[in-house]
Protein backbone atom coordinates (compact mmCIF):
# COMPACT_ATOMS: atom_id res chain seq x y z
CA UNK A 1 0.00 0.00 0.00
CA UNK A 2 1.12 3.51 -0.49
CA UNK A 3 0.28 7.16 -0.12
CA UNK A 4 0.97 9.32 -3.14
CA UNK A 5 0.31 12.90 -2.13
CA UNK A 6 -1.72 15.20 0.09
CA UNK A 7 -3.39 18.55 -0.51
CA UNK A 8 -4.87 20.80 2.16
CA UNK A 9 -7.20 23.62 1.11
CA UNK A 10 -8.96 26.28 3.14
CA UNK A 11 -12.60 27.16 2.60
CA UNK A 12 -11.73 29.71 -0.07
CA UNK A 13 -9.80 27.17 -2.11
CA UNK A 14 -6.31 28.39 -1.20
CA UNK A 15 -3.75 25.61 -1.12
CA UNK A 16 -2.43 25.63 2.45
CA UNK A 17 -0.10 22.69 2.20
CA UNK A 18 1.07 20.14 -0.33
CA UNK A 19 3.02 16.99 0.47
CA UNK A 20 4.29 14.39 -1.94
CA UNK A 21 5.73 10.90 -1.36
CA UNK A 22 5.36 8.26 -4.03
CA UNK A 23 4.34 10.13 -7.11
CA UNK A 24 5.78 8.64 -10.25
CA UNK A 25 3.90 10.65 -12.83
CA UNK A 26 3.85 14.45 -12.65
CA UNK A 27 1.01 16.48 -14.10
CA UNK A 28 3.27 18.67 -16.24
CA UNK A 29 1.71 21.93 -15.02
CA UNK A 30 2.83 24.21 -12.18
CA UNK A 31 1.84 23.42 -8.58
CA UNK A 32 -0.40 26.49 -8.49
CA UNK A 33 -2.27 25.48 -11.63
CA UNK A 34 -2.57 21.94 -10.41
CA UNK A 35 -3.99 23.07 -7.08
CA UNK A 36 -6.56 25.26 -8.82
CA UNK A 37 -7.55 22.43 -11.10
CA UNK A 38 -7.82 20.06 -8.15
CA UNK A 39 -9.93 22.44 -6.09
CA UNK A 40 -12.19 23.24 -9.01
CA UNK A 41 -12.83 19.56 -9.60
CA UNK A 42 -13.54 18.89 -5.93
CA UNK A 43 -15.89 21.81 -5.80
CA UNK A 44 -17.77 20.55 -8.85
CA UNK A 45 -17.95 16.96 -7.60
CA UNK A 46 -19.20 18.17 -4.25
CA UNK A 47 -22.04 20.19 -5.69
CA UNK A 48 -22.80 17.48 -8.23
CA UNK A 49 -23.04 14.82 -5.53
CA UNK A 50 -25.29 17.01 -3.41
CA UNK A 51 -27.59 17.86 -6.31
CA UNK A 52 -27.89 14.37 -7.75
CA UNK A 53 -28.19 12.48 -4.45
CA UNK A 54 -31.61 10.76 -4.32
CA UNK A 55 -31.67 10.95 -0.52
CA UNK A 56 -30.54 13.62 1.91
CA UNK A 57 -26.83 12.88 2.14
CA UNK A 58 -25.08 13.76 5.35
CA UNK A 59 -21.43 13.37 4.41
CA UNK A 60 -21.62 14.13 0.71
CA UNK A 61 -18.58 13.35 -1.40
CA UNK A 62 -16.16 10.86 0.22
CA UNK A 63 -13.78 9.47 -2.41
CA UNK A 64 -13.36 8.33 -6.00
CA UNK A 65 -11.36 5.48 -7.39
CA UNK A 66 -9.69 4.69 -10.70
CA UNK A 67 -8.01 1.39 -11.42
CA UNK A 68 -4.65 2.87 -10.35
CA UNK A 69 -5.35 5.12 -7.40
CA UNK A 70 -8.05 6.45 -5.05
CA UNK A 71 -8.65 10.06 -4.04
CA UNK A 72 -10.09 10.57 -0.56
CA UNK A 73 -11.75 13.78 0.53
CA UNK A 74 -12.42 14.95 4.07
CA UNK A 75 -13.95 18.31 4.87
CA UNK A 76 -14.23 19.67 8.42
CA UNK A 77 -17.32 21.68 9.44
CA UNK A 78 -15.04 24.73 9.47
CA UNK A 79 -14.24 24.20 5.79
CA UNK A 80 -10.68 22.86 5.83
CA UNK A 81 -10.38 20.27 3.05
CA UNK A 82 -7.97 17.36 3.21
CA UNK A 83 -7.35 15.46 0.00
CA UNK A 84 -5.13 12.40 -0.12
CA UNK A 85 -4.26 10.10 -3.00
CA UNK A 86 -3.56 6.49 -2.10
CA UNK A 87 -3.44 3.18 -3.89
CA UNK A 88 -6.77 1.41 -4.34
CA UNK A 89 -6.31 -1.11 -1.51
CA UNK A 90 -6.16 1.39 1.39
CA UNK A 91 -9.00 1.23 3.88
CA UNK A 92 -10.44 3.58 6.53
CA UNK A 93 -8.69 6.55 5.01
CA UNK A 94 -11.42 8.84 6.32
CA UNK A 95 -10.48 7.96 9.90
CA UNK A 96 -6.86 8.50 9.00
CA UNK A 97 -7.62 12.00 7.72
CA UNK A 98 -9.60 12.80 10.86
CA UNK A 99 -6.60 11.73 12.91
CA UNK A 100 -4.34 13.83 10.74
CA UNK A 101 -6.63 16.82 11.31
CA UNK A 102 -6.67 16.49 15.09
CA UNK A 103 -3.11 15.32 15.72
CA UNK A 104 -1.17 17.29 13.12
CA UNK A 105 -3.21 20.15 11.70
CA UNK A 106 -4.79 21.42 14.93
CA UNK A 107 -1.66 20.81 17.01
CA UNK A 108 0.99 22.31 14.77
CA UNK A 109 -0.89 24.81 12.64
CA UNK A 110 -3.99 26.08 14.45
CA UNK A 111 -2.18 26.22 17.78
CA UNK A 112 0.75 28.07 16.25
CA UNK A 113 0.07 31.76 16.94
CA UNK A 114 2.32 32.80 14.06
CA UNK A 115 0.03 31.16 11.52
CA UNK A 116 -2.41 33.64 10.04
CA UNK A 117 -4.42 31.59 7.59
CA UNK A 118 -1.86 31.74 4.79
CA UNK A 119 -0.14 28.68 3.27
CA UNK A 120 1.77 26.94 6.04
CA UNK A 121 5.51 27.56 6.18
CA UNK A 122 6.27 26.08 9.62
CA UNK A 123 9.09 23.54 9.49
CA UNK A 124 7.85 21.83 12.64
CA UNK A 125 4.50 21.22 10.98
CA UNK A 126 6.11 19.88 7.81
CA UNK A 127 8.29 17.53 9.80
CA UNK A 128 5.41 16.24 11.95
CA UNK A 129 3.16 15.90 8.94
CA UNK A 130 5.79 13.86 7.14
CA UNK A 131 6.34 11.67 10.21
CA UNK A 132 2.63 11.09 10.65
CA UNK A 133 2.15 10.03 7.05
CA UNK A 134 5.22 7.80 7.02
CA UNK A 135 4.29 5.91 10.16
CA UNK A 136 0.75 5.15 8.98
CA UNK A 137 -0.10 1.58 8.03
CA UNK A 138 -1.06 2.78 4.58
CA UNK A 139 2.35 4.20 3.79
CA UNK A 140 4.51 1.09 3.98
Amino acid sequence: MTIHNLYIFDKYGTLLHYGEWNRIKQSGITKEEEAKLMYGMLFSIKSFVNKISPTDSKDGFLYYKTNKYALHYYETPSGIRFVINTDTASTSVKEFLQQYYSKVWVEYVVKNPLWNGAPVTSDLFKQKSDEFIKQSVMFA
Partner: peptide, 15 residues
Protein backbone atom coordinates in the same frame (compact mmCIF):
# COMPACT_ATOMS: atom_id res chain seq x y z
CA UNK B 1 -11.74 31.31 15.36
CA UNK B 2 -8.96 28.93 16.42
CA UNK B 3 -10.67 27.21 19.31
CA UNK B 4 -13.39 25.86 17.02
CA UNK B 5 -10.79 23.75 15.20
CA UNK B 6 -9.68 22.18 18.47
CA UNK B 7 -13.30 21.57 19.44
CA UNK B 8 -14.22 19.98 16.12
CA UNK B 9 -11.16 17.74 16.08
CA UNK B 10 -11.85 16.49 19.60
CA UNK B 11 -15.58 15.94 19.30
CA UNK B 12 -15.73 14.87 15.66
CA UNK B 13 -19.01 16.72 15.32
CA UNK B 14 -20.61 17.68 12.06
CA UNK B 15 -22.29 20.91 11.12
Amino acid sequence: VRLIEDFLSRTNSGR
